[in-house]
Amino acid sequence: MPRVLLLEDDEREADVIVNHVRRYAEETGTPLPVRWSRSPMEVQDISAACDVCLMDIDMPGMSGMEAATLLRTYDEATPIVFVTNLAQYAVRGYEVDAVGFMVKPVSYGAFKMRMEKALRVLERNRPATLAVRSRGTSRLLRLEDVVYVESRGHDVVFHLSDGGEATERATLQSTMGRLSDTAFVRVSKGVIVNAAHVRSYRGSQIRMDDGTELGFGRTMRAQAAAEISEYFGGAR
């Protein structure tokens, strides 16, 4: 459920845009809770407060451009759409990778177009995840946090970058099927590695960035090493 933050000091303009958000949510069936603040200074952490930020450029205290520049020092992903009275100022949005701008008074058509783009960017930037079910409880793992997966009896164990584990009753073959078109490579009958976490490999040995040493399966070595090399070469 994407959360929308509107930073706008003019109450009448804010009412228009909030109503546009609600209309869009109703038309598309997309829940879009919206929060309105008069200034970025009222929001302690913009990235924690929203998934999409609609930001007026001309605000007292801290301008929208200043707030966006600050946001980009620690958050490169949150989609920003600027709202402005003067279109020529909005070109500076490229400096902070804004997805677009809307000129006041904001029509519903202009709003809809920018919101659709912002939501596409949000979806594209969303970390890939995998739902793991263990003992009746589901857990959502970020694939970038999985270092490697190993078969253990009738289970598969996901080894995570923070040193934790997640266990699921499954086969390694079925798990590999769920990880197709990702950076994961099956290196032996009992192990799948995340190529993004491979520090080095030589001969039959693979060293992961958490210090774990794993081995290639004899019959899988050539194909697995080629896939890891392809990843290192930036082909994925």
Rank of each mutant, 00 (worst) to 15 (best):
V121R: 07
V106K: 02
A225I: 02
A49Y: 07
G61E: 11
V103F: 10
E227R: 14
Y89N: 14
A196H: 13
T30N: 12
G233Y: 06
R35C: 07
P105A: 01
R133S: 15
T84S: 13
N194L: 03
G136Y: 10
P79G: 08
E150Q: 12
Y148N: 01
I80W: 13
V106Q: 09
D56E: 01
H159Q: 01
D181N: 15
L86E: 08
P31N: 07
P31Y: 10
S151V: 15
E95G: 01
Y24L: 15
E8H: 03
L32I: 09
M102C: 04
V103Y: 00
P31D: 14
S204K: 12
L7V: 11
G190T: 02
V21W: 01
R72F: 02
L214K: 06
A195S: 07
H154L: 06
A90E: 07
E42Q: 14
S161Y: 00
Y148D: 04
E66V: 10
D58L: 13
D97E: 14
V103S: 00
T219Y: 13
A25D: 06
G100E: 04
A128Q: 15
R126T: 15
P40I: 13
A195F: 02
V34S: 07
E230T: 12
E123N: 11
R236M: 12
K189M: 12
Y231F: 15
R35Q: 04
V132L: 01
I46D: 02
A87Y: 04
T167E: 13
V4E: 06
D45P: 02
P40R: 09
Y89Q: 15
M176I: 01
G64E: 02
A48Q: 13
V81P: 07
D75H: 03
I228G: 00
T84H: 03
I46A: 01
G109S: 12
T171F: 10
D45I: 03
L122M: 14
